[in-house]
Nucleic acid binder design. Structure first.
Lengths: 160, 160
DNA sequence: GTGCGAATACTCGGATACCGCGTGTCCGAGTAAGTGAGG
DNA sequence: CCTCACTTACTCGGACACGCGGTATCCGAGTATTCGCAC
């Protein structure tokens, strides 16, 4: 049930990338330095976001990563889905179809598992909450709570 | 992010236990047979629920497990918490406190992490959804969707 | 016949191995910039 | 002086080890039953 650390990394990375001037990619090594993370593994996660269409990567000497679309069109759900995958966290293994319970009273086997349904409802609430928070909204929040953070980040990115 | 299989097992186990006549514990081996699960591991999970106060265990020859309180007072949240633990699934490792970003612009370090906040909100939505579904409600749902299942289960439990 | 006590068989409970997935790392493919020579 | 092609250095990208937490299992502690015996 634990969310992998990659999600946290990627959210913060997206926040940082949102501070970069448009059209200027930031290379992975620089992002790693900024957050004090292992560059190689961070790159792996960034690639997942590229595959998902959230980030845009440009190869070559002055290459790097940049947001593939405006921060107002990137949600937390997108990032979580890219890193963790789209699979439901509660996967019904259909245990009611095995054991004595099944051979004894197989009647209900055709209807979808009620437990599965209830868990899915709860999970949907979570996903909707994540989908309702855009990266832009988070940036606003940060600008309100800690006004100096974003400008400082922007400045540091410019001093390539 | 995947929820352990133990959760599914325990929800189904609780459903089965709710069918048992009050005051008559069901032993782990019988539950395992009913669902076709390994008895030893199932027992381990059941113990977790006992420790959490959801189930009541009685030792001895005619011992076993039974619900510790009415099914209307047991929620999916209780079961998930007992098996998976109460820890948040998104744990902020405070990466913004390490790396260049911290030494360069430590300003925001005192305010709680915005990312953490947003993820916590989404998680709360999930937890509330789980907490709003009681075991009794699920039993009702099953009785509606597959009316024969619960009586058949009840009957099987009586044929000790 | 009845009460008591020890043996017993069955249960839960925690300590102990196994394994898959997330975590972390490495080296190769690809690209754009830089550089030098030639026209 | 301009153009072009080669070299080069730097980037991303996927393939390769490691460690931890969930999965699965076993044997020991505890209790109600039950059988035998003494009264």
């Amino acid at each position: 049930m634990k969310i992998s650390t990659g999600v946290e990394w990627m959210v913060h990375a997206c926040i940082t990338l949102a501070c970069a001037p448009p059209g200027t990619p930031v290379r992975a090594g620089r992002l790693a330095d900024f957050h004090g993370l292992p560059k190689a593994y961070l790159t792996k996660q960034l690639q997942a976001l590229v595959r998902f269409g959230i980030l845009h990567s440009v190869p070559g000497v002055h290459g790097g990563f940049s947001l593939a679309r405006p921060s107002s069109e990137i949600t937390l759900m997108d990032i979580v889905a890219a890193v963790e995958g789209r699979a439901d966290m509660f996967q019904c293994t259909q245990i009611r179809k095995g054991g004595v319970g099944a051979t004894f009273g197989t009647t209900g086997t055709n209807v979808p598992c009620t437990v599965q349904n209830e868990m899915a409802k709860a999970e949907l609430a979570w996903r909707k909450a994540l989908a309702s928070r855009t990266l832009a909204a988070i940036l606003d929040e940060i600008a309100k709570d800690a006004p100096t953070v974003l400008p400082v980040t922007r400045k540091w990115l410019e001093n390539a």
